[in-house]
Design a protein around this nucleic acid. Structure first.
Lengths: 152, 152
DNA sequence: TATTGTTATACTCTATAACTATA
DNA sequence: TATAGTTATAGAGTATAACAATA
């Protein structure tokens, strides 16, 4: 007897992708207008959340970017004057990244439009319902299932 | 008064990405071992769901791939003998795609391992809870919010 | 004329490995 | 020796436009 795959529609990764695409459809035009890629925006957002500076490792983990990808994004954002990078005096291998004034200004410029779109989504889906969904997604991400024994 | 951004953790797109990454971490090694990319797998999975052939347009919509990306993936899968492409006799502009015997064999070979991993996830998160989450994600994706007036 | 799919082109990100500097 | 970050390299996908064939 063979093991059939569950229907494509019942696949959790697909459901997450579908939901993410539907959500991003609302925000993409906004980022495009400001000439920011999704990944660059994730970096700027992560930096906005933190008061102080963040090192590259933390930033990579928070944004789900690989170190080489992040490295290039930081070169780009630095070149555009949106972030500053300084060497950590306590550990000179570490690079401390923070939003520049110009970077903060950009986030502040995007914020109202972004929030307005978010509120439309919230109104359409339901505030309480959205909060519960966020909780469930958070718990799902926290599962941290071990890789199979057969994986290297 | 400025509009502050909501915390990075409370961002729905980030929560969806985080959850998707956590989920895919379980399946990626499996695809890697079979030398299939995530996007190629989406195509194979979409073809598995459908009994009959599917045209490229439907496939692109189902897999969230742009036409040029799909086009290259189809060349690759065709070259590996995993799919067949025929011209639709009723509309010769359309290309009808279906899984080849070899493609079906590959999906059948991956299915048991994939399902085993899915069941571990289901057991850890809860079957009923997962079903509810899938329902909510489905509803979220179905919202289809209109782009803002300011978007072109 | 509009649509379906492919090809062209430039860019970004992914992924692994090698490298530099520091610890 | 190990770690943090960058650079090298190859490959895949994104995105827009242009194109050929068909409707």
């Amino acid at each position: 007897m063979t093991t059939p795959m569950r229907p494509f529609d019942a696949s959790l990764p697909m459901a997450l992708l579908r939901a993410r695409e539907a959500t991003m459809k609302l925000f993409r035009p906004l980022l495009l207008r400001h000439d920011i890629t999704e990944q660059q925006w994730r970096v700027l957002r992560a930096l906005t959340s933190n008061e102080g500076p963040v090192d590259a490792g933390e930033l990579a983990a928070a944004t789900f970017l690989l170190a080489p990808s992040l490295s290039r994004i930081l070169v780009n954002l630095d070149g555009r004057g949106l972030i500053t990078r300084t060497v950590d005096p306590d550990d000179q291998r570490r690079s401390l990244i923070r939003l520049s004034t110009q970077g903060s200004d950009l986030v502040r410029a995007i914020a109202p439009e972004s929030e307005a779109r978010y509120e439309r989504l919230e109104a359409a889906f339901g505030t309480a319902r959205l909060r519960e969904l966020l909780d469930e997604l958070h718990d799902l991400a926290a599962l941290d299932l071990p890789a199979a024994e057969t994986d290297s």
